[in-house]
């Protein structure tokens, strides 16, 4: 039995909006009942969110595309009444365009903002994984086809040879926050996390970068240690939110450097100059 899923590789997404446009082209003015009514202006069945993290000179810009995640345990379905929503055998969560009329609660029930209200039709609407195309023999939806960098990988989760199943088996895929108990069919690679990064310069006027300096990050009892690369840069990714961290730098012959902060915000670190001891 086929069960459709998608892995979204955030690291690849350049924020080009091709997916949004392809979705619009597929659905605007095109009624695909029973799975969907035509998409009106203003709907983003796949949203491309721009995220900025860090501070000068280490700022990171990422784009996170968010379609309907086709949740395994879907809050939207619980909000629907009168059989307005159903999950197909292939896992796709469908809002029935006829039975869902007037059901605004479906919009507010989705924790990911994936459902949009159609004012004219009085109807909640969302991404259908292009079910009408899949039913027609297509192997992937329009947005996936249009992505120029293959950030969207689509396929059958049950088929271990599919790209999507292989990614899930081999890579650290995650669920979008708020993380549900059951992983949804749409999952992510490389979701932006808090990070701390900087570069170390030796304060003795030499021009060489401080390569091989030991940098440690402590959280409670846990300590992670890395060495700066040959440009004097270091970077710790995947910091937890709202946690106390201590960054310390040790290099033989130089003063020890220590910084305490709470990860509710990205720390402003930039270039750290370490001075000769003594």
């Amino acid at each position: 039995m086929t069960r459709y899923g998608m892995v979204i590789d955030v690291d690849r997404c350049t924020g080009c909006f091709n997916c949004f446009l392809a979705c619009r082209d597929e659905h605007a003015g095109n009624d695909h009942r029973p799975v969907s009514a035509a998409q009106p202006a203003g709907h983003s069945w796949i949203k491309v969110q721009e995220l900025e993290r860090g501070s000068f000179p280490k700022v990171k810009v990422s784009y996170v595309p968010v379609p309907c995640l086709q949740c395994t345990d879907a809050p939207c379905m619980r909000a629907a009444t009168g059989g307005a929503m159903a999950r197909r055998a292939d896992g796709i969560v469908i809002i029935d365009p006829d039975k869902a009329i007037g059901q605004r609660d479906i919009v507010s029930a989705c924790p990911y903002g994936a459902v949009f209200w159609n004012d004219v039709e009085n109807l909640p609407q969302k991404c259908t994984f292009c079910a009408h195309l899949l039913d027609d023999g297509w192997t992937e939806p329009r947005c996936v086809e249009a992505c120029p960098v293959q950030a969207l990988v689509f396929g059958d989760l049950e088929d271990p040879t599919s790209d999507v199943a292989r990614l899930i088996a081999q890579k650290p895929v995650e669920a979008l926050a708020p993380v549900p108990a059951e992983p949804p069919p749409v999952r992510y690679l490389g979701l932006p996390t808090r990070f701390v990064a900087g570069e170390i310069v030796l304060g003795d006027g030499s021009e060489e970068c401080a390569e091989g300096v030991s940098v440690s990050l402590r959280k409670g009892q846990q300590t992670f240690t890395i060495s700066t690369d040959n440009y004097g840069d270091f970077e710790f990714l995947g910091l937890e939110a709202d946690t106390e961290y201590v960054l310390s730098i040790e290099h033989a012959g130089y003063e020890r450097f220590e910084l305490h902060w709470n990860s509710s915000a990205d720390p402003n670190i930039g270039t750290i100059v370490i001075e000769r001891a003594g």
């Binding site: 091709n18 619009r24 120029p148």
Partner: peptide, 9 residues
């Protein structure tokens, strides 16, 4: 096989 938003519109 690729295009861009302006082509898609």
């Amino acid at each position: 096989g690729r295009s861009c938003p302006r082509v898609l519109a």
